[in-house]
Nucleic acid binder design. Structure first.
Length: 235
DNA sequence: GCGACAG
DNA sequence: ATCTTGTCGC
């Protein structure tokens, strides 16, 4: 499965179709015992993508396992269409997981998107997997600056409707942008992301995924599914 | 028309 | 996203 060769207008049509399948009504007592982070890495000017999905237990955030794969894309990076570039390779890594996590965190936006179809929503609609988008910068929406202390947040609005949060994950450090991708409510999304945040700006699932995918890209780790033998408590 | 613009 | 050294602040 790939989106290579698709035009932007065709991609927009696909987003408008997929958005009809969005839902955020998974049970309020939705059990979360495992959480995963997904990330992509690549070399400049290369069409080869490196993907990692890391599996951690929740709420302790201990790394349990991870899947590494490479993929190929000719779809360029265009703001608003990141999913068409990265999702196909992420799905390859996803298929390698013997057990799926309760929640998957993606590097980018969920419904915090012009058509409510950021990468986390796109992946979620395709897989029916509960997902959350966690971006390092803003793509869409209006908001006030949160207080400087860790844990402070403000709603991000699409007009009058709150569709995500700007969350300060560390004192006096640039905030991150959180939104539901698929399945989970706004409030549950924020609660999970606060719990998944440790001592660093980037919440653990995404931070660990980024670290591991880079080790993969530079040859320190090999493709495939890996189980951690000595679980390291991250915090 | 102008500015903004995930990774 | 990646490249890349020093530097400012808590």
């Amino acid at each position: 499965m790939d989106y290579n060769g698709l035009s932007i207008s065709e991609a927009t049509q696909i987003q408008n179709e997929l958005r009809q399948h969005l839902r955020f009504d998974y049970p309020e007592n939705f059990p979360v015992h495992t959480i995963a982070g997904a990330d992509i890495s690549y070399n400049r000017n290369s069409e080869i993508l490196y993907a990692a999905i890391v599996l951690l237990d929740y709420p302790y955030m201990t790394l349990k396992a991870y899947a590494l794969v490479t993929g190929h894309t000719t779809f360029p990076y265009v703001p608003g269409y990141l999913a068409f570039r990265e999702v196909p390779t992420l799905l390859k890594a996803w298929d390698l997981l013997p057990e799926k996590p309760d929640v998957l965190i993606l590097d980018g936006q969920g419904i915090l998107h012009p058509r409510q179809m950021g990468i986390a929503s796109h992946f979620g609609v395709l897989t029916q997997q509960a997902t959350i988008g966690c971006g390092k910068s803003s793509l869409f929406g209006k908001f006030n600056e949160p207080q400087l202390s860790k844990g402070s947040s403000e709603f991000i609005y699409n007009g009058m409707e709150p569709i995500g949060y700007i969350l300060r994950t560390k004192d006096r450090v640039k905030p991150v942008y959180i939104s539901p991708g698929y399945g989970l409510s706004l409030i549950k999304t924020l609660q999970i992301m606060k719990q998944a945040t440790g001592a660093y700006r980037i919440p653990e699932p995404t931070r660990i995924a980024h670290e591991i995918v880079n080790d993969f890209r530079i040859g320190k780790l090999k493709a495939g599914y890996h189980i951690i033998q000595n679980p390291l408590t991250l915090f």
